[in-house]
Design a protein around this nucleic acid. Structure first.
Length: 575
RNA sequence: UACCCGGUGGUGUAAUCGGUAACACUACAGGUUUUGGUCCUGUCAUUCGAGGUUCGAGUCCUCGCCGGGUAGCCA
């Protein structure tokens, strides 16, 4: 094993350094800023979620980026809750965010912040802009503001309230804060340019009246700053150097720049990257919320969900997710990642780390006619052929076994190497067996396969070195542990879930067969497992013990199948 | 129809000051194998188009074409 490792290491190191050599465009900007000493050698990033839902794999990309950069540059990464809309935010989500970021392997230390902690400062800066004649109270309704904004191709019109005196603005704004006006009746707006080709600069709203209690500030405020007004200033307050965000905020950057410049405060550099898209996967927080609220799934942590909580329950490891985020790269090009990339990252990780075990999903009885009736043998099985350090275990063997239905064909097609009448195969770690006959029920369905075994092949090797073309997994019938197994398929039937037929919406693409539940048989060693433990069921896939498990009933989630080249061949034969 | 951003193989990313288009995944073909897994080997693009600058262009210039974003008091 030691020699194998030393053989592999140079390769892996080579790959690492090659990866490091090719810096992504964001790290290039940071390097440049370090060279020019733009921020005095500091690197400070932040991950700024709104606590209005669970984090998903797209957020994982951002988390890995922001915390990763901080780690690499010996900098710092803040966790900041962007909680500026009291109507949508809940403490439950804050806790879920903590959980998920930590689970992914990142630590914000003491640097946890809330935009709501800055409300007073933000308010004072608003007053400052009013005094400078750069913000005004506007009495237009939401609809009227919309009408005045103009369109993508035509300029907007100034609000009739745009030229109020500073004194009047100050008075009105103070009374907005005091709760004198009803929700939506007035706003504070930045005075920029109603004719700007960038609509974000057409006197954007900075404050709205919202008499709704906030999850942290309670009823202290009845006016709340908009995201556009608060976000950049929050970054500035925290002295963030590089504000990394997704592409849709590119058009907002001029506005954020306008705010910090007119306030004369620290100016972070915003850098935008393309958000993650994955085939057969929905990555819109709003729509994921709809899936949960509409009971299309069993909750935020349903193993079919692309949420971090869902993937965790499915059996994903933090390392697999981090590797995935690293592998997909970072650009400004909008792209769609094939979901098999995500699955492959899990296979890669679990192949090296998961304990092997034998389990049968679709049991077919197999009787070894020439095996002693009441005999049980304890056979040695390797726990992980990739890691000898994981040792071996004993697996009980007896006359009656279960094998996988798929592993027997009475009339084998071309290239089918598994068991069929007259054919000899290996039962993993046990014996060579040859099929002598089958039993069928009235409908013609095969109920039992009879075999004879060769006692000389104990352990799975034949002294005469004769070859068998297949090795089957099996479970001893009288030692088998029943388990519920949940098999998952993509939550959506189309690569692009948004691609709905005329007159239908994205929910019409939800896969009605995304969950299949069955009862399987497992070797008894799994009874020691704890929820969250991951296994490879040999020749089938990776499975994770679910939290629904009770002392009476095991529940396994299939995290991902193994690659299956026979399935591919068979599919090709049918076409 | 305005503004902003993007366009390299089936997919995702690379390619210092312009200098032989590289890596990974997939697919396909082999090899190893007590998992049809893993692992190993091989094969698969002249960079959206047209001009231009240059000894030399994926990189620079011009004009097109295509895709995405933007008209919340959401973030």
């Amino acid at each position: 094993m030691a020699t194998e490792k030393s053989k592999r290491e140079p390769e892996e190191k080579g790959k690492e350094s090659a990866r490091e050599a090719a810096l992504d465009f964001i790290r290039e900007v940071i390097n440049k800023d370090l060279e020019t000493n733009k921020y005095g050698g500091r690197v400070a990033t932040r991950f700024p979620p709104e606590p209005n839902g669970y984090l998903h794999i797209g957020h994982a990309k951002s988390i890995c980026l922001n915390f990763g950069i901080a780690r690499e540059y010996n900098g710092i990464c803040h966790l900041r809750m962007d909680d500026t809309n009291p109507c949508k935010e809940e403490t439950e989500y804050v806790e879920a965010i903590h959980n998920d970021v930590r689970w992914l392997g990142f630590d914000w230390g003491k640097h946890e912040y809330y935009a709501s902690d800055y409300f007073q400062q933000i308010y004072e800066w608003a007053v400052k802009l009013i005094k400078a004649g750069k913000a005004y109270v506007c009495d237009l309704s939401a609809d009227e503001v919309h009408d005045h904004r103009g369109t993508l191709t035509t300029p907007g019109k100034d609000s009739p309230y745009r030229n109020r005196s500073v004194a009047e603005n100050l008075d009105l704004f103070e009374r907005m804060r005091a709760g004198e006006f009803s929700d939506g009746s007035r706003t504070l707006r930045a005075k920029i340019d109603m004719a700007s080709p960038n609509l974000n600069l057409r006197d954007p709203v900075m404050y709205r009246i919202l008499k709704t209690p906030h999850h942290r500030t309670g009823d202290k405020w009845c006016i709340y700053p908009t995201y556009d007004w608060v976000h950049g200033q929050s970054d500035s307050i925290e002295r963030i150097t590089h504000s990394i965000c997704t592409l849709e905020f590119e058009n907002h950057r001029p506005l954020y720049d306008w705010f910090v410049e007119n306030l004369g405060i620290h100016h972070p550099q915003q850098i935008e990257f393309a958000r993650l898209n994955i085939t057969y996967t929905m990555l819109s927080k709003r729509k994921l919320l709809h899936l949960v609220k509409g009971n299309f799934v069993r909750g935020w942590d349903d193993p079919r969900m692309p949420t971090i909580a869902g993937l965790r329950r499915r059996g994903y490891t933090p390392a697999a997710m981090r590797n995935f985020c690293k592998d997909i790269g970072l650009t400004k090009t909008e792209s769609v990642i094939d979901v098999t990339r995500l699955e492959n990252s899990l296979r890669d990780d679990l192949n090296k780390t998961a304990m092997r075990v034998m389990g049968v999903l679709h049991p077919l009885r197999l009787i070894i006619d020439n095996y002693p009736d009441n005999q049980t043998e304890e056979l040695d099985a390797v726990n992980n052929p990739e890691d000898a350090g994981m040792g071996t275990r004993k697996v009980p063997f007896s006359k009656e076994l279960y094998i996988e239905e798929e592993d027997f064909r009475e009339d084998p097609p071309k290239q089918f190497f598994r068991l069929s009448p007259g054919r000899e195969v290996r039962l993993r770690y046990a014996y060579y067996v040859t099929c002598s006959k089958v039993e069928k029920d009235a409908s013609g369905k095969i109920t039992t396969v009879h075999c004879t075994y060769d006692p000389a092949t104990k352990g799975g090797d034949s002294p005469d070195h004769r070859k068998v073309k297949a090795t089957l997994h099996w479970v001893s019938a009288k030692h088998a542990v029943d388990t519920e197994v949940r098999l998952y398929d993509h939550l959506f039937t189309k690569p692009d879930p948004e691609d709905a037929e005329e007159g239908k919406d994205w929910t019409s693409n939800i896969n009605p067969k995304s969950l299949e539940i069955l009862t399987g048989k497992l070797e008894p060693s799994v009874t020691k497992a704890k929820p969250g433990d991951r296994f490879q069921f040999e020749r089938l896939g990776y499975f994770c013990l679910d939290a629904d498990t009770t002392p009476q009933k095991f529940v396994f989630n299939r995290s991902v199948t193994l690659r299956d080249s026979w399935a591919k061949i068979e599919k090709g034969q049918k076409e």
